[in-house]
Computed example of a mutant assay.
Amino acid sequence: MLAENFEQIEAIGLNLFFAAIFLLIGLAINDVLKRGDVPKFGRVIVWLVLFFGCAGFIAKGVIQFFMESGGIGS
Rank of each mutant, 00 (worst) to 15 (best):
L2P: 03
L16R: 04
V38G: 04
I45L: 15
L2I: 15
L33M: 09
I12N: 03
Q64E: 02
F65D: 09
G42T: 04
G56Y: 10
E10L: 10
L48D: 08
I21V: 09
L48H: 08
F18C: 02
I58S: 01
E4A: 10
G13A: 14
G53L: 15
G61P: 01
R35V: 07
C54Q: 07
V38Q: 02
V44N: 10
G71T: 14
I21C: 03
L33A: 10
G70I: 13
S69F: 04
A3E: 13
I9D: 14
L48I: 15
A3S: 11
V49K: 11
G53N: 06
I72N: 08
E10F: 02
L50E: 00
F52L: 15
D31E: 02
E4M: 06
L14T: 08
V49W: 11
F41L: 15
F17D: 07
G26Y: 01
R43K: 10
S69P: 01
K40H: 09
N5P: 03
M67P: 01
V32F: 03
L33N: 01
E10H: 05
L50R: 13
K34C: 07
L14G: 06
V32G: 01
A19V: 03
N30S: 01
L14Q: 11
L14F: 06
L50N: 03
V38S: 06
L24M: 06
V62E: 00
F17Q: 12
F17R: 11
N15F: 02
M1E: 13
A11S: 08
F52A: 15
L23T: 08
F66K: 13
E7N: 04
G26P: 04
R35I: 08
L23M: 05
E4Y: 04
P39G: 12
M67S: 12
G70F: 09
L23P: 06
G26Q: 00
S74A: 15
I58T: 05
E4S: 10
I21W: 03
E4L: 09
G42W: 12
V62M: 10
S74Q: 15
F41Q: 15
C54H: 08
K40Q: 11
R35H: 09
E7Q: 08
